[in-house]
Design a protein around this nucleic acid. Structure first.
Length: 206
DNA sequence: ATGACGATTTACT
DNA sequence: GTAAATCGTCATA
């Protein structure tokens, strides 16, 4: 598990598909979701990456950490998104988790969603984790998890970690979402990966 | 101190 | 399809 995260973002993005993202809450409840959609952010060369050009700030510091670290950031004034840091320490590559398919603790995912007044809309089960911010809302992931080690888990009896899962039968690729301003060639590179058979993708691939 | 912006989601026409 | 919501972060001064 640890070794597979040490590679470049595009490789890791594909390898993460099928793995289980798991969290245990203080009350002991566990939620699990199968990762079905990811995006690779290739580091200093990648104009769409928060680390483009070696940019290093308090916000993206986790990108420079060890593989297996979580990089969680806040955006649009209301949403959290989570990445799995990859490559080697000091090389700021990461993979954005764009969608999970609910597997366990679905009631708790609902509760977590409803706890956020901005996400009070009820969604069909398959859509609960279909989107980078939806996934974080469902799992209750926020800034407290930035920099946490996904291979070890968190503190306070709470944990956020990865487990082996079922590899997708068919993987589809496409351009990344919401990065138009990065310009070519980065806007067109096929760095978005999905499990073609999943009903929980954030958007269609084409 | 101020202003511009965002790896999104939701509601509405 | 378009637009609003909403605020932490960063660059500039």
């Amino acid at each position: 598990m640890a070794s597979m995260l040490g590679g470049p973002a595009d490789t890791v993005a594909q390898a993460l598909l099928g793995l289980m993202l798991c969290r245990r809450f203080e009350d002991g409840v566990v939620v699990r979701g199968r990762i079905v959609e990811t995006e690779a952010y290739a580091g200093v060369e990648d104009a769409a990456s928060h680390s483009f050009g070696g940019r290093r700030t308090a916000r993206n510091e986790a990108m420079y950490g060890r593989a297996g670290m979580a990089y969680v950031y806040f955006t649009y004034g209301m949403h959290w998104c989570m990445n799995v840091v990859c490559a080697t320490q000091g090389d700021p590559q990461a993979v954005l988790l764009r969608a999970i398919e609910p597997v366990e603790g679905i009631d708790r995912m609902e509760t977590n969603r409803l706890a956020n007044p901005k996400a009070a809309r009820v969604l069909p089960e398959a859509q609960i984790g279909a989107g980078p911010a939806r996934l974080c809302a469902a799992f209750g992931i926020d800034r407290a998890w930035n920099g946490s080690d996904l291979l070890k888990g968190g503190e306070r009896g709470e944990r956020l970690w990865l487990e082996p899962g079922v590899v997708p039968a068919v993987v589809v690729l496409g351009p990344r979402i919401g990065i138009d301003r990065a310009g070519e060639p980065w806007v067109s590179k096929p760095l978005r990966f999905g499990d073609a058979g999943s009903p929980s993708l954030s958007r269609r691939f084409r």
